[in-house]
Design a binder for these strands. Structure first.
Lengths: 280, 280
DNA sequence: CTTGACTCTTCCCCAGGGGAAGGCCCCAAG
DNA sequence: CTTGGGGCCTTCCCCTGGGGAAGAGTCAAG
């Protein structure tokens, strides 16, 4: 009877409890504050925290779940319920998160490897000036945005090829796209998908023929996946402004090899900016 | 000539530059502050940041390296050097770090899976009281700490078995260890490695014979790897204090099956605490 | 009673930004 | 020239999960 009252409660202060549980004193204080592991007794005058020996098991559970990087609030939720189903579900949810992080690390690692493989440091673009003559193209115009653009381009080239072959014409050069607007991640814009043809082109579909403007171009070639073409643009626009030229029209990309055949890292894309050369 | 002076510098404010580079305005301001990507020009009166188009390439490099989670200071170091060797080395160092994190995620995931597999929620230890009779053991005493303990126990059992068989005696029960001190992560302590034998035991090696104390024990059995035995101890000490008993001597672990044969998750370890039962 | 080891709170720090508040600034249209 | 709306500025607080230090109070053993 007396045993239950006085209870041989065996309260231990935070330092000893810290050693018992291998949780840092700092962590224990935080777990107190957040309600995750409040001490059995706090001395009102001194503020000292005292833990019961039996609390070490809860602490151990916290330590284990923290060791797999579970957030504190989820640990709290798990320890608050008695339903093994809920516990199991919470563990599964956390497993998904861990698996996601694992996959992310893997993707980063893979990408980093590809960066390492690329012998050239970073973005060795060589800019040249070229004189282009106007050329006849079959074209379709598309309004799109960054998330749809890959699909739209594929579909556009498909219907354009169909229109060309329907007219009995065949391509006379590499396909290209004129980017009439800057397409950011949230802005939309027009692009013109073009295939060079010999002579004039007419069609009753969306496709039409026109003469693509020639003139002086600042030009570079990007080798690699289309998604990584941004540096080529930056190099060109930077080069143009540094050399005192001015952009004279929308840029165009010419696809020098076939993404259906060539692996992404070897794709070649030529980027042209029409410029005014202010002879200085 | 005039072109070089006035320079068609084409300065863009931070919002446009943010869209060009897909770096957030907030990030750009931080990169300015940290010297990673200072704008080409800052208006002294308004504080407005203006970037040159040519800076977009450096920004792109930052974005790429951040996308693989490289720390800002390392990116700074990479962009500050022109030596491709150093760049390559920095990338390799970062790859090691990523690989390490990947491995850590994998370990956590694996451990979490094992937690999920364990059907029972957390730590279903059943504590019982048992009366033990004294028994003769052959023993060696070892002073060790947490980092050496696994090796020391293995070596201790090895030499103890040698001593026993040298005397022509054979074990009469499961091996056990008496833990005379609490062994925390930084404290050292004595443990006594014991093998039950029939009759008295003498040896001229470090091994000696003695009678292991009997008495009333609080007992539970841990199933799983030795490293995870802490909850068993916590359950026992908590149980003892809650039931108004007192610990009467050093605890002992009895190894009920053989770690050389049994996989870690099925290892059985019985833990006994000698207690005074204060009949109340 | 003293002393040394514990423990308390509070504050600042880490990375890499996100978000909001409050206040200028810039530019184009009227 | 003025006005309005959107852009931009700084400063502050927030996130995670603690680590480390400062200064003061407390506990227990000799």
């Amino acid at each position: 009877m007396a045993g239950e009252e006085v209870g041989a409660v065996n309260l231990v202060p935070i330092g000893r409890f810290s050693k018992m549980t291998r949780l840092s004193v700092k962590a224990l204080r935080m777990y107190d504050e957040s309600g995750l592991l409040p001490p059995a007794y706090v001395d009102p005058s001194s503020g000292y925290r005292y833990y019961e020996l039996a609390q070490a098991n809860r602490a151990e559970a916290v330590r284990i779940l923290r060791s797999v990087d579970m957030p504190l609030d989820e640990i709290l939720a798990i320890l608050a319920t008695d339903d093994p189903e809920l516990v199991h579900k919470a563990l599964l949810v956390h497993r998904e998160r861990l698996a996601g992080r694992l996959a992310a690390q893997e993707r980063m690692l893979t990408y980093l490897e590809s960066l390492i493989q690329r012998k050239e440091g970073i973005m060795p673009y060589e800019v040249e000036i070229s004189e282009e003559t106007p050329q006849q193209v079959a074209a379709v115009k598309i309004h799109t945005n960054l998330s749809r653009i890959a699909n739209d381009i594929g579909a556009g080239f498909g219907s354009l090829m169909q229109a060309i072959s329907g007219e009995g014409v065949s391509p006379s050069g590499a396909p290209l796209i004129v980017y009439h607007n800057v397409i950011d991640q949230e802005t939309e814009g027009d692009i013109e998908i073009c295939i060079p043809v010999d002579g004039e082109f007419c069609s009753d579909s969306d496709a039409y023929g026109r003469e693509l403007e020639g003139g002086t171009m600042a030009t570079t070639v990007h080798r690699g996946p289309y998604e990584e073409i941004a540096p080529a643009y930056h190099t060109l626009t930077g080069w143009i402004s540094e050399h005192g030229h001015e952009i004279a029209g929308p840029p165009r990309e010419t696809y020098l090899n076939d993404p259906q055949v060539i692996p992404p890292e070897d794709l070649l894309t030529r980027v042209d900016f029409p410029i005014h050369t202010e002879a200085g």
